[in-house]
Amino acid sequence: MAILEITDVSAGYGAGPDILQGLSLEVEEAQSYCIIGPNGAGKSTLLKVIAGLLHPRSGDVVFRGESLAHRRPDQVLATGVCFVPQDQALFPEMSVRENLIMGAYLLKDRALIKERLARVYEMFPILAERAGQDAGKMSGGQQQMLAMGRALMIDPILLMLDEPTLGLAPQIAQQIFSQVEQLKSMGLTVVIIEQNAQRGLELADWGVVLDLGIVRFEGPSEGILGDPRVRELYLGKAAGSGEKK
């Protein structure tokens, strides 16, 4: 059953042109999706629209029967949709622990917050080690883990990650990937944007190829990986841009 239905969504920034041009997509529960596509295809914009950070100009976003299209970000989050943006969006002058507590901002139950905190520390031991450190002073990989840990504090149903391995060294990126794997196995629905399409598709159950603000191809990852059209059109490009020239 689809928990997230995006229908005919158009969206753009300010008075600028439509970045999303009537995009439709269905997301099934407890599946993982990897979104790929060239620069400017609208990948980040799509996630921002779902998260309520950008309101669609037309079309609708329905999550578990509720329309999110004109909700505030905090209202969207309250329904269980959590977004980790590309720049991780941490609070640099707050400690790791405070950042995690901010992740549970919508929760009132202190005992529950404590419980979640323990769970996140268990999943990311490094965060427990650095609990008192300012988030701004951590390495890129640690910041990414903090961002993911913070997202888990709210115990989301749908987790959206925008290029979580951006700018990270390969072995750190691998670590992040295995964490995502773990989240998947916990039953979370995960939507991930990944610049390294090959790796992203290997991780995810489904592949979605965006181009010019619409979904060009979608299907099981192996299919997308194997599809010669996709390979030729996007995989080459996307993979190529990840390599040094």
């Binding site: 969006a89 609070f91 640099p92 002058e93 901010m102 992740g103 709210i154």
Partner: peptide
């Protein structure tokens, strides 16, 4: 404090 440090991030965590 969160909004002071990073407004976008504050929005994302539901502030």
């Amino acid at each position: 404090r969160a909004t002071t440090q990073n407004r976008a991030a504050a929005e994302i965590v539901g502030v």
